[in-house]
Design a protein around this nucleic acid. Structure first.
Lengths: 351, 351
DNA sequence: ATTAGCACTCATTATCAACGAGTGCTAATA
DNA sequence: TATTAGCACTCGTTGATAATGAGTGCTAAT
């Protein structure tokens, strides 16, 4: 793409209004927008010819394109970008309760990962697109209780109760034989020592702590073994996606193989995770349109995300993925609102 | 439908061969089967005219139908039924490893419900249709350890370790205040007393047991409270479904609103659960074709299921749901084989 | 019982014209 | 100078018509 100073001038008021209206109309109807009917439909007080001139300019500046000669115009990615930007500028952040996210239901979820898959489901259900949630890294999880339960002679179940009241299970295998009573003692010790700390902190201090400890009813060597296995794994954040079937009902997704490219990206979760993680450090809603997601590897898709917090700290990202021609007017507030709900929920639970 | 004795005669050898081949061909091509090309393609040593006569008879008997006059024939549900029956008769049960179900992976799953959702995923992935699994009722789950962990002043986490080495969590809320040490004691008691018994047995005997008990370090009243909350819930089996998006890629599912009726049934999980439960008492693969699933509420779909066991006891059902025109030659062995794998796995894990 | 022959049906495909909504360009206008 | 009317042109969509071809049922001959 060559840089052309003429093409980079800011839009005047009328052009801006026209562009936004065109994008809006196209999102609504999925039909290329033509000058004559467009002027009529929106009662612009200019003639179709003038409209054509404006459209011509907007096309030259890269905001619009024609599917073929003698067809109306449709937005380019740049056009959508302009639309979304002005949407975000004038955004009121007062979206109502009509989204009806069932907080009570979420609170009752016991299993940590289930909370997030529930949120994913809700996002997809309300948006009628695919919901996507990046869970918090376990490293940041603050632990309230640590319990060890003997399963077999050499298998131990580690149960972490998090500050939010959810539960993480992990099975570990050791070589030496340990009695349940020993484990009770060790559990007590761990809980009293590390209650209130995050997993990453525990990981750091546990080993030095253990080595320094003298009097114990439990062999230090075995304790170290257990601790190592229990806390040493680097706990990645997880990526939940749900509602892909919604995308399959969207015509522009099904036509051609847009679908395939999208499904590929979705299956290669690491790529998507990387993209999501970039939103982690940003407050507010972030949109990625078309090629912005990942250079031209995915076409015709947009990703709307926002980070969610525990307290003041951004811990994860949630959002929606769908066709570029999605209803940003609804999706952006939905994501924004969901982010706040989830933040509130998690913050409240961890008190 | 009127009963017509002529229509109920058994098929002779040639008719049988023709019918099976027609069904087979239609499953392969999704094109109505016409006499002339059909005779050619499969080198039948009869003339198209004779083939027409046979087809005419088969149509009269209800095995075939014409989408419109002057089109070839396609199978009716009854036709599919005949095909599947003869498939099952000659079925060798020696299907190979090419299905590549990742047993090792499954074994590592810690959370009980995750095992079954993994199995569901695999079924859908391999069959390219929707996988469906009815999990065992928790009542039948044999418990190996029972642990109680105090969360809050009045919240307790119940952890059941099952014989298969998986874990069930449940949060319970009581009114009185209990210390963790008390809970340790109670956990020990519960484990020593009920290790090896199924939840249903525990439920029955726990209360009388507790009431009869005299000397205890733990107030009997509170223990009863906890036990009641912990074990009293009637634990239904769960229905996992995955891979619906596969169905959306199948043309005959998308055309018309077949999809809707199917999705409705899938969302009303109770209906489907009832249907699945009927397969529980049957050994071997069970197929339900078209209207057989549930009288004409779902059209054009088939359900292939088999029960799976722990030891000798059927505990759950797994299978595949897809269009009536599915590849039974592959799906039936897949389901059969998966059933055996899962049975082996669960049986082995519970030793 | 089988088959050749024949008239008939009907979905599919190709062709072609008419239509309409769109465009760019030019010249007249406010 | 910006706007607009007018005009020739493009091109996807629609609808009618005809040709094609794969299929059928029926009848009579083998």
């Amino acid at each position: 793409m060559t840089f052309d100073p003429i093409n980079e001038r800011p839009l005047d008021e009328r052009e801006s209004a026209v562009l936004s209206t065109i994008v809006h109309d196209y999102i609504e109807t999925r039909k290329p927008v033509g000058s004559r009917s467009f002027v009529q439909k929106y009662s612009f007080s200019i003639s179709p010819a003038t409209m054509r001139n404006i459209m011509f300019d907007l096309e030259n500046m890269g905001f619009l394109m024609q599917p073929h000669t003698s067809a109306g115009r449709i937005p380019t990615d740049k056009g959508y970008r302009y639309y979304v930007n002005s949407l975000l500028e004038n955004y009121s952040y007062t979206y109502g309760k009509e989204l009806s996210i069932n907080e009570e239901y979420l609170k009752r979820e016991l299993q940590l990962d289930k909370i997030f898959s529930s949120i994913t489901k809700m996002l997809s259900h309300i948006s009628k697109l695919a919901g996507i949630v990046l869970t918090p890294r376990l490293d940041f999880t603050v632990v309230k209780r640590i319990e060890l339960v003997s399963l077999d002679n050499n298998q131990i179940l580690l149960i972490l109760v998090t500050r939010t009241g959810t539960v993480i299970n992990k099975k570990i295998t050791i070589s030496t034989n340990v009695t349940q009573d020993n484990l009770y003692d060790f559990s007590k010790y761990l809980t009293s020592e590390f209650c209130g700390y995050s997993l990453s902190v525990i990981k750091e201090s546990l080993f030095s702590e253990l080595r320094g400890r003298q009097e114990t009813s439990f062999k230090t060597g075995t304790a170290l073994d257990i601790a190592q296995l229990a806390f040493n794994e680097n706990s990645e954040s997880e990526l939940c996606i749900d509602g892909i079937e919604n995308l399959l009902r969207i015509p522009e997704m099904v036509e051609e193989n847009r679908l395939n490219s999208l499904l590929n990206i979705i299956e290669e979760k690491n790529i998507l995770r990387g993209i999501m993680e970039m939103s982690m450090s940003i407050d507010g809603v972030k949109t990625l349109i078309g090629g912005e997601i990942i250079d031209d590897k995915v076409n015709g898709c947009s990703l709307v995300t926002t980070a969610y917090k525990i307290g003041n700290k951004n811990v994860g990202v949630l959002g929606v993925i769908g066709p570029t021609r999605m209803d940003y007017d609804r999706v952006v507030p939905l994501v924004e609102y969901s982010g706040r709900i989830v933040s509130d929920l998690l913050t409240q639970m961890s008190k």
